[in-house]
Design a protein around this nucleic acid. Structure first.
Length: 649
DNA sequence: TATCCGTGTCATTTC
DNA sequence: CGGAAATGACACGGA
């Protein structure tokens, strides 16, 4: 019988553990007080403009971090259901018992799950003191889970399953402390657990219940980073499977992966542009990416044949490769977070440093180009050049399509053209190695966002994603990649301009003028440079303009709604005020009647309410005054009164 | 196939 | 005066 009671308690404990896991994951106060007070998701309603695409996600995170959890969140249903079950559990036993469990088990999740091997045999004689501190420590542990392994170990040493029993015994022995904890601990736990729970909303219940997920992500990150660095080139074929395998180990980094995915999405670059992928070089492409990632220096130094443009692109090529790799990683696992900093360090260091490294030899290629080719590509060479053409898919750019599709990569990872007679016959020689920085710029170019960090975007994501797959790139993919190139980028390539579009657009005007004047560009090239810069700036200006327009529309819509609500409120207040005034007037009239009825005139008769009224003065005096009738009636009335008085006298 | 929406580009004005 | 920014208008592609 005693044993059955113990098992019953154990079962209740386990059930309560589960309920505490589920039931306290939502801060009900935030639902009741936070949601209806304001609209935290306002930016989500701003429309599908690309300028806002990122904001809903972060807004969502913000709302999770704050008190604005959407009331339709399924966690809420779990909460109410679990609360009902919890009440049933409470009704089964001591009224104190489940409350205590509910209090500390909320943050005992980690320790419980970590000790998943079964009930611990340790007798924690200091569970009460641990309990008092656990409410705070555990919540902090929950917040520091990603980077603190020590805290986890501390948690593991805390009250465990049997510790709960021990605590129950001790709780029954100490009623005073029990009552204090009953009243205070659950509330504080609930509040303090909100942040952890809201994080858990993203991580999922599985992440909480799986002991594997309790490993601090930092450890996993280091481990994965080391594993990645230890990869040899021959192992790179297994990279995809490795990533897939690691994905299962990194489920706890779902949120991290998501956030990095968003951030990295901005930094994605095209593999075609940066690496010169040929349709039939799927496997070597991966090798090149890895090499460019881990052998940045050798990439540049081991290619004596590379044109000076390679030196120009040294800062860009590794970045592009890193972006490619991390972009793919971030879509599969949390590994992207390891590379995130490196990616943006590259971005920050990129700048325009390549501009200083231009070799005059690079300019030599400009003179070799057949002017007819340039004429075909940009017959106007003015502002309205090819405004009616379809860019890469237009007939005029067919040569560029074949040119782009002829990209290949050499041994050292440098990009270059494969032999393409149709191109070379036009006078375009192997200058493509000079396009590494331009590839980067191109990869940075197709973005429709409004801030410079978001320059890294768009087709490059899909291209890099395709790049990591081992399937060979088909012609259609190659063509689609070519279509992803901007027309200006293609023009710049054709004109052999050793600057990226991004560089051309973003460099200071003084530097731009210096480049135009001091690098021996032909007039056509100068015109193209100016056009590229003008179009690029105008594109950004148009994006900003549209964003402002949407902001204005949204703001006006909000203002309309606000004013409409204010008008409705004022109308209701007016009606209520009128109704109140009527009621008060009736009360005053009735009160005046009562008072006048109790007053007596000189003859001892009650005052007629029809003839007298009460006047309240500012000094607080209340005076009975006769009602002033219209002049005639009042005068006649007074006369009759006087006559009556005179008669009486 | 028509329509809507997002985007790029050009022309123009303003700063 | 030239560059940049802002904006209306138009064309184009995708859903």
């Amino acid at each position: 019988m005693q044993i059955s009671k113990i098992y019953s308690k154990e079962g209740l404990i386990q059930l309560t553990i589960f309920l505490s896991l589920v039931g306290l994951r939502v801060d009900i106060d935030s639902y009741l007080s936070g949601y209806y007070n304001d609209a935290p998701l306002i930016e989500i309603n701003l429309g599908p403009s690309s300028a806002y695409i990122q904001t809903p996600f972060h807004n969502f995170r913000d709302t999770l971090d704050g008190n604005h959890v959407h009331p339709k969140c399924p966690e809420l249903d779990y909460f109410f259901a679990s609360r009902r079950l919890l009440d049933e559990v409470k009704s089964l036993g001591s009224p104190r018992f489940p409350t205590h469990l509910n209090a500390w088990l909320v943050h005992q999740v980690s320790a419980t799950d970590k000790g998943d091997s079964g009930p611990s045999t340790s007798n924690d004689t200091d569970t009460s003191s641990r309990l008092e501190s656990l409410g705070f420590e555990a919540s902090e542990d929950g917040e520091h889970l990603p980077d603190s392994g020590q805290d986890l170990s501390d948690l593991g040493q805390g009250p465990c399953n049997t510790g709960a029993c021990g605590f129950l015994k001790e709780a029954s022995e100490d009623d005073v402390r029990v009552k204090v904890e009953e009243e205070s601990v659950p509330v504080t736990q609930l509040v303090r657990s909100s942040s952890l729970e809201q994080e858990s909303l993203l991580e999922g219940i599985a992440a909480l219940s799986d002991p594997v997920h309790l490993h601090p992500p930092s450890i996993d990150i280091d481990q994965h980073w080391n594993n990645l660095l230890s990869l040899s080139v021959t192992d790179l074929d297994d990279l995809d499977s490795l990533v897939t395998e690691r994905l299962s180990d990194l489920d706890t980094d779902i949120t991290t992966a998501i956030s990095h995915d968003v951030s990295l999405r901005d930094a994605m670059v095209t593999s075609v542009g940066a690496l010169g992928v040929t349709p039939e070089s799927g496997e070597s492409r991966i090798v090149t990416q890895q090499r460019s990632l881990f052998r940045m220096e050798s990439t540049g130094s081991s290619n004596p044949d590379a044109s000076p443009g390679v030196a120009l692109g040294l800062a860009a090529l590794p970045f592009a490769s890193v972006c490619n790799l991390t972009g793919n990683m971030s879509q599969h696992s949390g590994l992207g977070c390891c590379l995130d900093e490196a990616v943006f360090d590259q971005i920050n260091q990129l700048g325009l440093e390549g501009l200083d490294t231009i070799d005059t030899q690079l300019m030599g290629c400009l003179e070799i180009i057949d002017p007819q080719v340039l004429k075909d590509l940009d017959s106007d060479s003015g502002l309205s050049v090819e405004s009616s053409s379809r860019g890469p898919v237009s007939p005029g750019s067919s040569e560029m399509s074949s040119l782009s599709s002829s990209y290949s990569e050499d041994e050292g990872g440098a990009t270059g053209y494969s032999s393409d007679d149709s191109v070379r016959s036009k006078g375009i020689i192997d200058y493509s190695t000079a396009w590494s920085p331009i590839d980067l710029s191109e990869s940075l170019w197709h973005d429709h966002s409004y801030s410079s960090p978001a320059f890294f975007d768009q087709p490059l994501v899909t291209l890099s994603h395709k790049g990591i797959k081992e399937e060979p790139v088909t012609d259609e993919e190659s063509k689609s990649n070519e279509r992803d190139l901007s027309r200006d980028e293609l023009r710049a390539r054709t004109m052999c301009i050793p600057f990226s579009v991004l560089q051309i657009v973003n460099m200071p005007v003084e530097e731009f003028l210096d480049i135009i004047d001091g690098h021996g560009f032909s007039p056509e090239q100068v015109t193209l440079l100016r056009d590229i810069r003008r179009r690029g700036k105008n594109k950004l200006a148009a994006q900003n303009c549209r964003k402002r327009k949407l902001d204005a529309i949204t703001g006006l819509q909000g203002e309309v709604e606000r004013l409409r609500a204010q008008r409705d409120r004022l109308v209701r207040e007016k009606q209520l005020t009128a109704k109140t005034m009527g009621a008060v007037g009736q009360q005053i009239k009735q009160l005046s009647r009562d008072i006048l009825a109790r007053l007596r005139d000189d003859s001892g008769r009650p005052l007629d309410p029809e003839q007298f009224t009460l006047q309240c003065w500012s000094n607080g005096r209340v005076v009975v005054q006769p009602i002033r009738r219209p002049a005639i009636s009042s005068s006649t009335g007074n006369k009759t009164k006087k006559r009556e008085k005179e008669k009486k006298q």
